[in-house]
């Protein structure tokens, strides 16, 4: 039980980072549909950086850099050029998959044994980690998890209590008004997507550096899309997505746990694998009172 909850927190970390990234960009009017590719390239960057330098910090930095670079391309096409976001996202997801697989081969050739890196060490918070039960679950995690949880109040503060947050939210509700107020909507959206990309890259690196210690091209397996979905289900608020990620983290942890335990071949363990995806559909269909940002997905073109 403790182990399961510990894993829930562990598995919800990247989803949390990814969905907060989406909250920012979607509040601003841009859906980052390349999130799956950003996760993947982050996972790859994190792996390569850590493997080559034996330094997880450099790995994380490279992951953030890769995620930001891909989101810059995404922002250029969707924000600057105003192209279809879903379509661009699909293209960049394929591009990222090909890019990672290709350069993995360029850098490492065909390895005879699997390439492995050390996963991030567990940081025990003094005193707090000694609390029974809660200490093991909440305060014996790795650094990225702590960062992800600090991000929730921080992003709430930025989005709802600062003038920057007001600008971001207004750009997703009424970009004309924001433009009239003398703020460059394109620039604002571009920068927000870059921030989202860096968070997405960090999220991706969690899978390689923080969890598996290896890189495979199917390591993300749709979790970027799940982060995308959680943003919708969490009603575009940081605290909303926190609940969402915990639910999906639990589903993810359960699925890994049951796969490890089940031995009977007729037991449909695929049900458990499909659980997070089914949950997404069910919740998307059930929730109809969503407060969608008014111009979500619509490119802003200045009339001149």
């Amino acid at each position: 039980m403790t182990n399961l909850l510990y894993r829930t927190i562990l598995m919800s970390t990247p989803l949390l980072l990814g969905s907060v990234a989406e909250v920012f960009s979607e509040r601003c009017g841009v859906m980052v549909c390349a999130i799956e590719g950003i996760f993947l390239i982050g996972a790859w960057g994190g792996f390569v950086g850590t493997y080559l330098t034996h330094n997880a910090f450099i790995g994380i930095m490279l992951a953030i850099l890769c995620g930001t670079a891909l989101s810059a391309l995404y922002a250029f096409v969707t924000v600057t050029l105003g192209q279809q976001q879903v379509v661009t996202g699909t293209a960049l997801n394929i591009l990222a998959a090909g890019f990672c697989a290709f350069f993995q081969r360029v850098i490492f050739g065909v390895p005879t044994s699997p390439l492995v890196i050390d996963t991030l060490p567990i940081l025990r918070i003094p005193i707090l980690s000694n609390i029974p039960f809660i200490g093991t679950i909440l305060f014996s995690q790795n650094i990225i998890t702590y960062l992800a949880y600090l991000l929730i109040p921080l992003s709430y503060y930025v989005l709802f209590k600062t003038s920057l947050g007001l600008k971001i939210r207004s750009a997703g509700e009424n970009p004309v008004a924001v433009d009239t107020a003398g703020i460059n909507v394109t620039k604002l959206r571009f920068l927000t997507v870059l921030v989202a990309g860096s968070l997405g890259g960090l999220a991706g690196s969690f899978y390689t550096i923080g969890y598996v210690g290896m890189f495979t091209t199917n390591i993300i397996g749709g979790r970027g899309w799940i982060a995308f979905a959680i943003c919708f289900l969490g009603n575009w608020t940081p605290y909303g997505v926190l609940f969402g990620t915990l639910a999906f983290g639990l589903a993810d942890a359960l699925s890994i746990y049951i796969q490890a335990v089940s031995t009977s071949s007729y037991f449909p363990r695929e049900i458990v694998i499909a659980l997070p995806y089914a949950l997404t559909i069910i919740l998307t269909v059930m929730r109809s009172n969503l407060r969608v940002p008014a111009v979500l997905g619509i490119p802003y073109k200045k009339d001149n």
């Binding site: 391309l73 096409v77 192209q83 279809q84 379509v87 661009t88 699909t90 293209a91 960049l92 997801n93 394929i94 591009l95 990222a96 998959a97 090909g98 890019f99 697989a101 290709f102 081969r105 091209t217």
Partner: peptide, 15 residues
């Protein structure tokens, strides 16, 4: 995987 890379790049260029 080069195929995916090519197709991803081509798609991006087309967009």
């Amino acid at each position: 995987s080069l195929v995916e890379l090519i197709e991803g790049i081509v798609m991006t260029c087309v967009i």
